[in-house]
């Protein structure tokens, strides 16, 4: 077992000059899916791995992204379900030298399913092998369309490995990460009926983006306890620290449920807080958009480094 030791922001320039044991990329249906990959040199990765979603492989942009990896890196994306637990962990375990003391892995989460990077975090926490695992996460921010289509909520489940404690005799605190979809937060709050509701959203890359998110989520924000917490999009370290401060006073005495519906850096920060405090639940609200929304790469990239270290005192 390993415990999450610390989370720190990482300069992309440093990542671009680092030699990694494994590089993990996802070929998705957004234009930005291979944007970070274009900035790395294939030689930086002892084992480059590219996975493609089983679910959206007919989308033209997805096929272009596959072509990129096929032509530039000579790697055929391995098709995986966006949801299957253990798939990423299995791939990592197969590539890692279990006798090594330290393993360093780069993950481009720009277009990656949250189940995949959750799986990688679980692998870093629980797999046998190296005493120290460093996961460097990179995220290429995106340019979203002005009108973001709302989606149909299908099912709410927990992210595998992040089930947390759900003692029905305890009160529940929901910590909602809001984005540009005003419907899903409503759906979750209506179902969850938490005793306390907090919310956070991204400062975004422009004041207009923040204003749009605030206005779209007005009905939800009217319902929450206290003020909405505005977190930086480009600092996972700060988001991790703030979400820790929001959740830890309740952990263990109430059921704490993260519902990260906003940008991936905040989903990641929520997962990392839950990885540090296993009582915390991370919900995954599955849904479907009426149409795929292409997201173009923006200028900004954020990255962070997460260190997991063996914890020999850890019990069952």
């Amino acid at each position: 077992m390993r415990r999450l030791l610390h989370v720190s922001d990482l300069d992309l320039g440093v990542a671009l000059g680092t030699a990694y044991d494994i590089g993990l990329f996802a070929s998705g249906y957004e234009t930005r899916a291979n944007s970070l990959a274009t900035r790395f040199s294939l030689e930086q990765f002892a084992e480059p791995l590219v996975f493609g979603f089983k679910e959206s492989n007919a989308v033209p942009q997805r096929q272009r992204n596959d072509e990129f990896y096929r032509n530039k890196w000579s790697i055929e994306p391995e098709i995986l379900s966006a949801e299957a637990p253990g798939a990423i962990a299995g791939a990592l375990q197969g590539k890692v030298n279990t006798g090594a003391d330290e393993v360093r892995i780069f993950l481009d989460i720009s277009s990656m399913s949250r189940s995949w990077y959750a799986d990688a975090i679980n692998w870093a926490r629980f797999s046998p092998g190296p005493s120290r695992i460093i996961l460097d996460f990179g995220y290429q921010s995106g340019i979203y369309p002005d009108v973001y289509p709302s989606r149909t909520v299908a099912e709410t489940t927990t992210l595998s490995g992040f089930e947390g404690q759900s003692d029905v005799r305890l009160q529940t605190v929901a910590i909602m990460g809001l984005g540009y979809d005003p419907v899903t937060p409503h759906a979750v709050l209506e179902d969850l009926q938490p005793d306390l509701k907090y919310a956070f959203l991204a400062r975004g890359t422009s004041p207009a983006a923040l204003a749009l998110a605030l206005s779209l989520n007005k009905a939800t924000l009217d319902e929450i306890d206290g003020d909405v917490v505005i977190l930086p999009l480009m600092s996972i370290q700060e988001a991790y620290r703030s979400l820790g401060e929001m959740s830890l006073p309740h952990a263990g005495i109430r059921n704490v449920v993260f519902v990260p519906l906003g940008p991936k850096p905040h989903v990641l920060a929520s997962l990392l807080v839950a990885a540090k405090n296993e009582e915390i639940t991370c919900l995954h609200v599955k849904g479907s958009h009426v149409a795929f929304t292409d997201v173009l790469p923006a200028f900004e990239v954020t990255a962070c480094s997460v260190v997991f270290e063996a914890d020999n005192c850890e019990s069952q």
């Binding site: 637990p85 709410t156 489940t157 595998s160 759900s166 029905v168 969850l192 449920v257 919900l283």
Partner: peptide
């Protein structure tokens, strides 16, 4: 009184735990 709260039920759907 035994409620089947959503956060509890969501755990029942965990693919990992069901394996």
């Amino acid at each position: 009184y035994a409620p089947a709260r959503l956060n509890w039920v969501s755990g029942l759907r965990s693919q990992l735990l069901l394996q």
